[in-house]
Computed example of a mutant assay.
Amino acid sequence: MRDLIKDAIADLKKGDGFIYVTADGSKIDLHDAASKGIAVTPVNPKNQVIKKLEAAGLHLNDGKFLNELNELISLVTGNGVTSKTSKRRTFSDAEKSKIVEEWKKVEAAGKKTKAAFAREIGVGYQTFINWLRG
């Protein structure tokens, strides 16, 4: 599990934003592929990481799961006091814009309701609606 998490972090820290895969699914450097004449497909590493983590049972897009995981970590490490009330979080304008952009992608795919998306990101429904009107 630790190696999986380390690999996920490494994949997400790569600078160009995409990884490139061959027809058989192997990762390859874009310049190597071009010099060898190999056709590649750009893949968002975030999507690949999410699939790998979900296959291992880590559902990081599930807000409830994340809350439970954070509570478990807190209880095991003894860092912080867990309670039913959560600390109120303030989002910067840039974070709000990014969340609204992400919602537009999710909405275009028709996969979730606004309420489900707001729950997933840990924001109240009405707050999220206000951001959309913003």
Score class of each variant (00 low, 15 high):
Glu71Ile: 08
Ser92His: 10
Arg89Asn: 09
Val123His: 01
Val21Tyr: 03
Gly110Ser: 03
Lys14Phe: 01
Trp103Lys: 05
Lys36Cys: 09
Asp62Pro: 03
Ile50Tyr: 00
Ala8Leu: 04
Ala34Leu: 15
Gly124Glu: 10
Thr127Asp: 09
Ser74Asp: 13
Gly124Ala: 13
Ser97Pro: 00
Lys114Pro: 00
Gly63Ala: 01
Lys111Val: 05
Thr113Lys: 09
Gly122Thr: 04
Ser92Trp: 07
Ile121Gly: 07
Asp62Gly: 02
Glu120Gly: 11
Val123Thr: 04
Gln48Leu: 13
Thr113Gln: 05
Leu60Glu: 04
Asp24Trp: 02
Glu107Trp: 02
Ile99Gly: 04
Arg89Asp: 07
Glu102Trp: 07
Lys98His: 10
Val43Cys: 06
Gly63Pro: 06
Gly78Pro: 01
His59Ile: 03
Ile129Gln: 14
Ala33Ile: 11
Asp62Val: 02
Ile99Glu: 11
Leu4Gln: 06
Asn44His: 03
Asp93Arg: 07
Arg88Ser: 13
Thr41Asp: 03
Phe128Ile: 10
Val49His: 00
Gly17His: 07
Lys84Gln: 14
Lys13Phe: 01
Lys52His: 02
Asp93Asn: 11
Val49Ser: 01
Gly17Leu: 04
Gly110Asn: 06
Glu95Tyr: 05
Ala10Asp: 14
Asp29Arg: 12
Lys46Arg: 05
Ala56Asp: 11
Gly15Asp: 12
Phe117Asn: 07
Ser92Lys: 10
Glu102Phe: 07
Pro45Asp: 10
Arg88Lys: 15
Ala109His: 08
Ala33Asn: 10
Leu72Pro: 00
Lys27Met: 07
Lys46Cys: 00
Ile38Trp: 08
Gly25Met: 12
Phe91Ser: 08
Pro45Gly: 06
Asp11Asn: 06
Lys112His: 05
His31Pro: 01
Ile19Gln: 07
Ile121Ala: 08
Phe117Asp: 09
Asp29Leu: 11
Ile73Asn: 08
Asn47Thr: 03
Ile28Leu: 13
Arg2Ile: 13
Asn61Gly: 11
Glu71Thr: 12
Thr22Tyr: 03
Arg88Gln: 14
Ile73Tyr: 13
Lys6Ala: 09
Asp29Gln: 13
Asp24Arg: 08
Thr41Pro: 03
Phe117Val: 02
Asn47Leu: 06
Phe65Trp: 13
Ile129Arg: 14
Ala56Tyr: 05
Lys27Ala: 07
Val43Ile: 11
Ala118Pro: 08
Ser92Phe: 09
Met1Ala: 08
Arg89Val: 13
Leu53Ile: 08
Ile28His: 08
Asn79His: 12
Val106Arg: 10
Gly124Trp: 00
Lys27Asn: 11
Asp16Lys: 06
